[in-house]
Each structure stands twice: as C-alpha cells, then as structure tokens.
C-alpha cells in the first residue's frame, strides 16, 4: 500500500544524534517530563506546593466579567488563530472554559468568534460544558459561537463590526494574535470595554501593552492557564518549569564563563553539547 520512496540523503540515526539538536532536545523533553511527573505525584500525595506569584491580569479576569454582568452587556472572548495544533489554543481553551462557566453562573452572554473549523466544534463543546457545569444547560446559545472565515481580515471585519453593534463590556483577547491585535484592542478601547490580553507573540505584545488594561506577557499566559483552576496538580507543573529555568540560569552562566575564559580558537564544550 505504501509506495517506496528513493532516499534522497544518507540515513540518519534519530536517537543517536546526527540531526541537529535532536539529542539535546530529547534530553530536555525527558528532564521536563520526569520533573513534572515527580512534582505532580508529590502534589497528589498532599505535599505542599509553592504558591504562584500574583499575576495582575488573572485577578482582573473575574472582575471584568463581573462588570459586564452589572452593565448587562456581553463578554467577548476570542483567540484569532485558535487552530488545534498550537499550544496557545490549548491554553486558550482553559480560559474559555473558565469564562464560560462564570458567564453561565452570572447569566451574562459570552460571545466567541472562531477562525478554524475544528476549533469551532471544540469551542462549542467547551462552552456548552461550561453551561452544563453551572447547572444552566438551556441558557447556552449556539448563535454566540461564530465562525467568521479563517482569513485574518475577514475575521477582523466581522469582529469589529460585532463590537460596534453589540458593544461588549469586557473583551478578553487571549491566545494567538497577529496584526489584528491592534485593530481589536483599539476598537475595544473606543467602545469603552475593559480589556485583558494574554499573548506570547513578541510581534504583538507591544500593541497589547500599549492599549489594554491588563496584559499577561509571554509565559504568564501558560502559567495563568495552570493557575486558573487553583488545582495543586496543575500548579505543580509550573514548579517543574521553574526548576528547569533555574537550571538554565546555571547553564547560561557556566556557558558564558567558558566562552570568556576559553583559549583563542577553542570550542566551547557546553555549546557543542547543546547544539550537538
């Protein structure tokens, strides 16, 4: 059934190097996996887990939904490119579930605009489950999960039109955004919505920082996704992440010392190892 394809280049030994950074990446994966597993087992066994430092944007999330409820206006939550292959989308689903449940409890409309077909099915499922968990399955309105084509500026045209016509009081821009970040954030600002952004794209963060009320920068997006459930097991994964970060500090400092004091023309051992 499978056709044989003539090999174009020499054979490669995957696990045993020969392909760029495969080995160091594999080591990194194993280290993270073992650490994470170790920390969550500890958390499950009831050992104390360090607290996460306060993230301003996350505290503001509930406040924003509360304000929309008071004003009797909907909440708009969206991630532009929420395709299933991106880790930002996976983080976004956590925020979406949290927001949907809160909105169902407060009896506030939640509007979600989607740009990918498979994600559309997933978002519908998540919001529906949120309403179910809040005990109000019949309040779920399928018309508030909207597909606005997968093309960036058609999507933006639809969303800012919606913003102007339905005037949500809170706008949560969480996940993956490209050039549309500024259009959405400025338009949200013009209609006076309270805005929280969470983004890990270095291109778009400047715009969010300049225009939104609260911004979760880079890694905070993922840490927030773990923290939002207040579940010690989830928080444990963040501890594992911080352990690796401490180790990387060590690696960078040692690497720099080696680089500074090595003989002229010699190789930096650490660099060789990491690049493999």
């Amino acid at each position: 059934m499978l056709e044989m394809v003539q090999l174009a280049s020499g054979a490669k030994w995957g696990f045993l190097a020969d392909d760029g950074q495969a080995v160091s990446g594999f080591c990194m994966m194993m280290i993270m996996l073992i650490l994470t597993y170790y920390v969550i087992t500890r958390a499950r066994a009831g050992f104390p887990i360090p607290h996460i430092r306060k993230i301003a944007g996350l505290e503001a999330l509930d406040e924003a939904i509360g304000r929309a409820t008071e004003m009797g206006q909907p909440v708009h939550i969206s991630s532009f490119r929420s395709t299933v292959d991106q880790q930002e989308s996976w983080a976004f689903w956590v925020y979406l579930a949290h927001t949907a449940k809160l909105c169902a409890q407060y009896d506030t409309r939640i509007i979600n605009c989607v740009s990918d077909e498979i994600s559309l099915a997933i978002h519908e499922e998540i919001i529906q489950t949120g309403y179910l968990e809040a005990g109000r399955p019949d309040a779920y309105n399928p018309d508030d999960v909207r597909y606005m084509s997968n093309q960036q500026f058609a999507w933006v045209a639809g969303v800012i039109g919606m913003l102007e016509r339905e005037r949500p009081a809170a706008q949560l821009l969480i996940g993956r955004f490209f050039a549309e970040s500024l259009v959405l954030a400025e338009q949200g600002n013009l209609i006076g919505a309270i805005q929280i952004a969470a983004n890990d794209s270095a291109f778009q963060l400047p715009f969010f920082v300049a225009t939104c009320d609260y911004v979760l920068i880079g890694e905070e997006l993922y840490v927030g996704a773990a923290y939002i459930s207040r579940d010690p097991v989830m928080t444990g994964t963040v501890v594992a992440e911080d352990m690796v970060k401490m180790a990387l500090f060590g690696v960078m400092i040692v690497g720099t010392l080696l680089e500074t004091f090595k003989a002229e023309g010699a190789d930096n051992i650490l660099r060789t190892w990491f690049n493999y």
């Binding site: 950074q21 990446g25 990194m28 994966m29 990387l248 690497g255 720099t256 680089e259 930096n268 690049n275």
Partner: peptide, 28 residues
C-alpha cells in the same frame, strides 16, 4: 487531531530554543 500535534510539540518545541540558549553564552 489534537493528540497528533501534542506529540509534534513535545518533540519539536525544544529544537529552535536550543540555539537561543547557546546564543546566550557571551564572551565578556
């Protein structure tokens, strides 16, 4: 759909980052 990409990210996310870590080794 999701699972297949979870595997990809697990294998591939460290790859571009490794170069960035070694790029942080500076000659002071």
């Amino acid at each position: 759909n999701v699972g297949y990409f979870v595997g990809l990210r697990m294998a591939m996310l460290p790859r571009p980052t490794m170069v960035q870590i070694t790029a942080a080794f500076r000659n002071l």
